[in-house]
Structures are given as C-alpha cells and as structure tokens.
C-alpha cells in the first residue's frame, strides 16, 4: 500500500497547480477499474493502484492540450507520454507525471477464460496471487498466468519520464527475446497460411473502431482517414477486405510511433490479436532504424526523417 500512499501525498502536493490529475478508481465491480479524474482533494481518496489498473491514461493527454494536467503512468504508459512529447502533441511544462514502477497488469480476457466473472463479489491480492470471490466460491490464480502479454516481455517496468516516482525504481527481469514471440510464430507460416490466419481472425472484426478510440497515438479524432469520404479509403461494405484495410491502415499510421501499450487489443470487443500487426511493424522499424518508439525524447521518429545513405535498406537492383 505504500506506493498508493506516496502517490496520494504527491498528488495532494501538486493538485493546486493543475486543473486535474488522471488516475484509476474502482469500476462497476471490484475486478474492473475505470479512469479517475481528480479535481479536488476529496477525489484523491478514491484513487487506487493494483494490477487491475490496465488503462493507458496517456490517451487523454492530447485532449487537455493547453491546460496543465497531472497523470499517473506505468512504465509502458510513460513511453506513450514520451512519444506524444516527441511529436509535440503535448507540452512538457503542461504535464505533471506521477510515475509508478509496475510489476505488470492483468489481462481481463485471461481471467474471464478461467473464472466466471459475471458476479464478482471481491478481489484481493496475496503476494503473487489474485483471489477472486464469486458466488461459486473463491478462486486463486497466480498473477504470472494472467498477466497481459505486454507485461510478460516488459522491458521498461519503471517509467522513463516522471516528475514524481512512487517507490523504488525496478529494472526488467523479463527476457527481451520474448518481445516479438507471437510475431515470429506468424512469420514462420507460409504466405497462404498467413492470409488464412488473418482471414480467420479478422473476419470477427466489426469495425467498431474501439482499437482506434483506445489508441493513445490516434490523435486525428474527427479527421480520421477511416471516416473520410474523400479519399474513400474504407467503404460501408462489411466484407473482409474492408476489415483488412482498416487494420492495415491503423497499423501503418502507427508505424514508428506505436509504443506497444496494447490498448488496441485490450479494447477489442471481439478479442482479435490485433496488437501483433502493430508489433510486426515495430519489429521492422527496430531492425531497419534501431528505433523504439517512446524511449528517447531526443530522437526524431524514423519516418519523419531520412539518411541519404540508408545502411539497413538493401534496394533491389533490377
């Protein structure tokens, strides 16, 4: 609990100078959390911090441009803040960053697959286990089993940028080799199988654009290419082609920008593993330009710049 106490103390100290602080509070049941907007000292008591605080709150930051706001970030969320700063979508002096060293958050889909979550009565954390109380009795699950995929290969548990840090900085104990494990699995298939794989996954897509709306780097808001009539990138047809087009469109607009926070996949109501599409581009960007989005504030994102001689690009000579 000491992380939470430190957070509350830091927020109390800063609240005067900001219009609001964004954190997490209990949602409609104890298994779900929801973003909390702290505007007055009384709101601070509702703040919580535990592995259920899944949301990347940095998604809200571009909305508050022009106002000074405080934000709570985990290690992964801090990368989004850095990327937003790099693209000048937010100003450094307009954000107060409360960093939290994070040991990983849960993937609710993984819990739902193991426990019937329709009537959760209580949730508690005991060491590295989560105990969920339902009318059928109490179920204990090891946290390691239900951690979000991004946490299993997390390289940045401590925020890379912060004004206040709650607790001691921790370093990653996760093997970096796992970072692209799922991508590599798909790469091993031949093109026909790959197409069949995506066809099977993407046919579930209902184009609700939850992935876009949750994405902290989708900042076009009302000017999204997917909604444009001219050019008409996407029609109102319901075929698989439009679903492919949408997912590729999103991934390409994130090329060299995606910080791998996993909000797209978490928000997907059809549980489609869409983060893999973004991850594939991240992998190529890393190989080509040695760049990881949201890690270094000083570097220009690779697609916003160029080199006259590209050492990594082997252009085809016909």
């Amino acid at each position: 609990m000491e992380i939470l106490d430190k957070l509350k103390e830091d927020i109390r100290g800063e609240l005067e100078g900001v219009s609001l602080v964004i954190g997490w509070e209990r949602g409609y049941d104890s298994l779900h959390t929801t973003p909390l907007f702290i505007r007055c000292p009384e709101d601070i008591d509702r703040l919580i911090w535990n592995p259920l605080c899944v949301h990347n709150l940095a998604s809200y930051l571009p909305w508050f441009k022009g106002r000074r706001v405080g934000i709570l970030v985990k290690g992964c969320d801090s990368r989004t803040v850095i990327q937003l700063l790099q693209e000048r979508l937010i100003q450094r002096e307009e954000v107060v960053i409360f960093g939290i060293p994070c040991q990983g958050v849960v993937d609710l889909a993984k819990i739902r697959a193991r426990v019937d979550c329709s009537q959760v009565r209580g949730v508690s954390f005991k060491g590295d286990k989560i105990a969920i109380e339902t009318p059928q009795g109490q179920r204990e699950l090891p946290l390691e089993e239900i951690l979000a995929t991004k946490c299993i290969s997390c390289q940045y548990p401590t925020p890379l940028i912060y004004d206040h840090l709650a607790g001691e900085a921790i370093s990653s104990h996760r093997p970096p080799g796992l970072l692209f494990a799922e991508v590599e699995k798909i790469e091993k298939l031949d093109p026909k199988e790959r197409f069949a794989y995506w066809q099977q996954e993407l046919q579930r897509c209902i184009r609700c654009y939850a992935c876009r709306n949750a994405c902290p780097l989708c900042v076009c808001q009302d000017f999204c290419a997917a909604d444009a009539r001219d050019p008409h990138w996407l029609s109102q047809k319901t075929g698989i082609g439009e679903k492919f087009m949408w997912q590729i469109l999103h991934a390409i607009h994130l090329a060299g920008r995606c910080t791998d926070c996993g909000e797209c996949e978490r928000a997907c109501p059809m549980d489609i593993p869409i983060q893999r599409i973004r991850k594939k581009i991240n992998k190529e960007i890393k190989e080509l330009f040695g760049y990881e989005a949201g890690v270094n504030l000083e570097v220009t994102p690779p697609l916003y710049t160029f080199q006259v001689e590209e050492p990594a690009i082997k252009e085809r000579e016909w």
């Binding site: 991508v183 798909i186 197409f195 995506w198 590209e310």
Partner: peptide, 26 residues
C-alpha cells in the same frame, strides 16, 4: 528519401498479412 523509408517498411510488412513477397516492389 522519405518514400524509401516508408516503402521499405511496407515491403517488409505486407507479407505478414499474407500478400506474397514480390507482389510489391519499389
């Protein structure tokens, strides 16, 4: 120069979605 970076990323990405390598070239 900008095109080269973008198109190279695209060329490496398209096969992942099931479009055979070689169908797109720059």
């Amino acid at each position: 120069f900008y095109a080269r970076r973008r198109l190279e990323v695209l060329k490496r990405f398209l096969p992942f979605m099931g479009i055979e390598p070689g169908r797109f070239e720059y």
